[in-house]
Design a protein around this nucleic acid. Structure first.
Lengths: 252, 252
DNA sequence: ACAAACGGTTAGGGTACGCTAATACATGGC
DNA sequence: GCCATGTATTAGCGTACCCTAACCGTTTGT
């Protein structure tokens, strides 16, 4: 049984005597949940923010790059851990406990990203992958120490918010819009860039597109060729696909 | 199959189609070896430094806190990975490849320890356990970045050497002795303290016993009560069990 | 010389994950 | 209302680790 002090997973009609771990547990003693469980919670949390419906099993599977049956099984597992409620045949929803787990993982992830970039000077585009690995190994104590060293910032390098664990609201709700949606002459601040596509991240790094800079839309190019935009103090043309990954807040 | 580009483990009479991972491998894609394998290599490396014989299966099992059969199985596994050669019925020995793996893990471990203590200001005694967790998740790139930030030290906080990957010699060989072995009036420098016992670490931290300080043995107490020693600029009595965990280098 | 003792290996199970193939269910078209 | 379609679940496996119990092979004591 991997997690001490928690109801045993699955059937647990086991025969094992020693209450130590099975499989992966030689390391990670005492950490509450397995990396896989944390990943599912995190993914579920993110997908829940997009709809009010329960999250479809297939969507989770796609996001995590596993087969649908695997996701289905894991969701049952998570529900036995009390982290999700499964709406059979339709999808799953995080419980409050599940949301806590997800927020903790996401918080650690963002702190680690910030730390890798600002303290260790790692290049932009490798930071996300490294953080995906580390988020399951870094204890809260270490993560909070990193956060202190960074000066307790409220956003990570991509502009994603680093919120307290008991905060459920997304501070970007009702505030941020994709740059894509803006018409000419609108002005504001670049708040965050999506970290979903490493390639896009690299491009943005090379072209000086980073959170914190002022943004002004100059014109919309014809035939869907994107927007002419001033970011910081350079003008450039942003294609619509990239513009959907850039989130801005109106100031004008 | 967890490790890309390596001969498949065990029989591999599998039926699986997708060449992705099984079990634990959703994260850690691309990392060469599983945490368990790294732990075995590390332990083997340490035990090999104590004897010239092949390392006994039972010794490894004890050190890793697993059953002897588990260790036996894993050693077979490691031998199929080309990391050890098993001397059947007697024990195992690391191959050059195994030694490389072990040194890489140990190097990461020590860099992480130093980093947690010096950069993150974590207390002495929790540093070792955190590092045990992190050493399998931190990539070489991140570890080397940490090392740079620390100023490329050649020892970790306990005084254990941080050596290059291709260096096989222990720089402490023929140089360090346990404090226990010293007679009165011998003087030198405290180079390292064993990190094997967290309790001892805590005691030493509280009593100002740390690597780098000058040491002079003042007298040996009667009836095995230990030694009267000056460490830094305080005198104290060190019991023989503690004295065996403190390693010193003669300067006089 | 032989039996006890000890250490290692083999046998047989477990759990956590993952996968494919086959089945169940929900939904939408007609 | 009924079937085609798609999505979700169940069935059955595979692998990495771990464990206990039973089985060897050496070494050792007398």
């Amino acid at each position: 049984m991997p997690r001490l002090f928690l109801p045993a997973p699955h059937g647990d009609r086991s025969g094992g005597g020693r209450p130590r771990s099975s499989g992966t547990g030689l390391r990670r003693a005492g950490l509450a949940f397995s990396p896989a469980v944390e990943d599912y919670a995190k993914t579920l949390y993110r997908l829940e923010q997009l709809t009010d419906e329960p999250v479809a099993t297939g969507a989770i599977a796609t996001r995590l790059d596993v087969s649908t049956p695997s996701a289905s099984n894991m969701l049952r597992h998570l529900s036995e851990l009390g982290l999700v409620t499964v709406v059979s045949g339709r999808g799953a929803r995080l419980t409050p406990a599940g949301r806590r787990v997800a927020r903790a993982v996401i918080r650690r992830h963002r702190i680690i990203e910030g730390f890798l970039r600002d303290a260790l000077k790692l290049p932009w585009d490798c930071v996300h992958e490294e953080a995906d690995l580390l988020e399951h190994a870094v204890s809260s104590r270490v993560a909070e120490a990193m956060w202190d060293v960074l000066g307790r910032p409220d956003r990570d390098p991509h502009g994603d918010p680093i919120t307290a664990l008991d905060v459920d609201v997304d501070p970007d709700k009702d505030v941020l819009e994709p740059l894509d949606a803006w018409d000419p002459e609108v002005v504001g601040v670049l708040v965050r860039v999506s970290d979903a596509q490493p390639e896009a991240l690299r491009y943005m790094a090379e072209h000086g597109i980073a959170p914190g800079l002022p943004v002004r839309v100059i014109a919309r190019e014809p035939f869907g060729a994107g927007q002419r935009v001033r970011i910081g103090d350079t003008d450039q043309t942003i294609g619509p696909e990239l513009a959907r990954l850039i989130f801005v807040q109106r100031t004008g």
